[in-house]
């Protein structure tokens, strides 16, 4: 492993999330590299800092959460005054939750944070059922949980059991394309969407939005970053091709051209390499001939080789380097 690869593995190494082979390679490199050892020390310091915050936050967190949640649920319960059955259930839930949180404050600190977090997740689950379906001017609805799993089961009294459940649920959010929250979600969708089709659609919508000049400079920067990320890391060829489409408008910028060169050299799909070459060739610069000469030496796809050879001929440059 070289320094770049080791630097990339350090976070996973610290979390114990790498294979034994990779771990050996990292440790072997670290043994002989001062720079990477320093980087490892800095990363460990960073992780310690994150844990310091954990200890700082817990003292006030439960008190704050108690009062805010209590106020929010009571306010919501007041609006449901006509629906006595619901209100009684809600009051009972709040009362039980408050008693549980009071008990929790006596728990030894190492257990208080995760247990408190689980209690808050459970309260959030209940609270969400009685919360209006709007936030920040954007309408949203809660669907049924996408995923849930039981984390722990403990007896909590005679004939009673306490079950900690992790849930991830899907929100449906709608709004105008000019809404900053919608825009941010679209940008996240380019790189974070678990479904390639959703990533493609996010790029398409952002591309159209940018093309219509509806976005501002900050939006363009976000779009550029998201497209560069998708080109470099997305596992779907279609998404990478769509990202290249979106990058056309930025193809004269140095960092975009650098990303295009990397795609020409590293992407394992010939269509992506061919489209990246097209984009590079659309705007000549001093490095273009060198990039193409280098690419033609590495290229194993005959069609892409032919494309590069033709471009070099148009530029009156040789295929080989001397």
């Amino acid at each position: 492993m070289n320094c770049i690869e080791v630097t990339r593995e350090i976070p996973n190494y610290c979390y114990g999330e790498i294979s034994s082979e990779a771990e050996e390679a990292v440790e072997s490199h670290l043994a002989g590299c001062d720079l990477c050892r320093t980087e490892l020390a800095r990363h460990r310091k960073f992780l310690e800092l994150l844990d310091e915050r954990d200890a700082v936050a817990d003292a006030g967190l439960l008190v704050q959460c108690r009062s805010e949640l209590s106020a929010a649920l009571r306010a919501q319960a007041a609006t449901e005054a006509g629906r006595s059955g619901i209100r009684q259930r809600l009051d009972r839930t709040v009362r039980n939750a408050m008693e549980y949180l009071r008990d929790l404050s006596r728990v030894h600190i190492p257990f208080r944070i995760p247990v408190g977090a689980l209690a808050l997740v459970a309260l959030g689950f209940v609270g969400a059922r009685y919360t209006p379906e709007r936030f920040g001017g954007v309408s949203a609805t809660l669907a049924e949980p996408m995923f849930s799993s039981v984390r722990s089961v403990e007896p909590s009294g005679p004939g009673q059991v306490q079950i900690a459940v992790d849930e991830i649920r899907r929100h449906v959010v709608s709004g105008t394309l000019q809404d900053p929250q919608i825009h941010d979600l679209l940008v996240s969708g380019v790189t974070d969407g678990s479904d390639p089709a959703a990533r493609l659609q996010s790029i398409q919508v952002l591309h159209d939005l940018n093309g219509n000049a509806a976005g501002n400079n900050a939006d363009s920067e976000q779009l550029r970053q998201a497209l560069l990320g998708a080109l470099a890391h997305d596992t779907s060829v279609d998404v990478r091709l769509k990202a290249l489409d979106g990058l056309k408008q930025f193809a004269t910028e140095a960092r975009v051209r650098t990303a295009l060169v990397v795609a020409v050299q590293k992407d394992d799909d010939a269509r992506v390499r061919a489209q990246a070459i097209d984009l590079l060739a659309a705007h000549h610069d001093d490095s273009l001939v060198g990039v193409l000469q280098n690419a033609v030496q590495r290229e194993d796809n005959p069609l892409v080789r032919a494309q590069i050879t033709q471009l070099l001929a148009q530029l009156k440059a040789s295929v080989g380097t001397y």
Binding site: P11, M146, F147, D166, I168, D192, S194, T235
Partner: peptide, 17 residues
């Protein structure tokens, strides 16, 4: 849990870190 691969989660963790 989030409907993706371990590798994608690893990349996501790297970016977040």
């Amino acid at each position: 849990m989030i409907g993706t691969t371990e590798e994608a989660a690893k990349n996501c963790l790297f970016r977040a870190t």
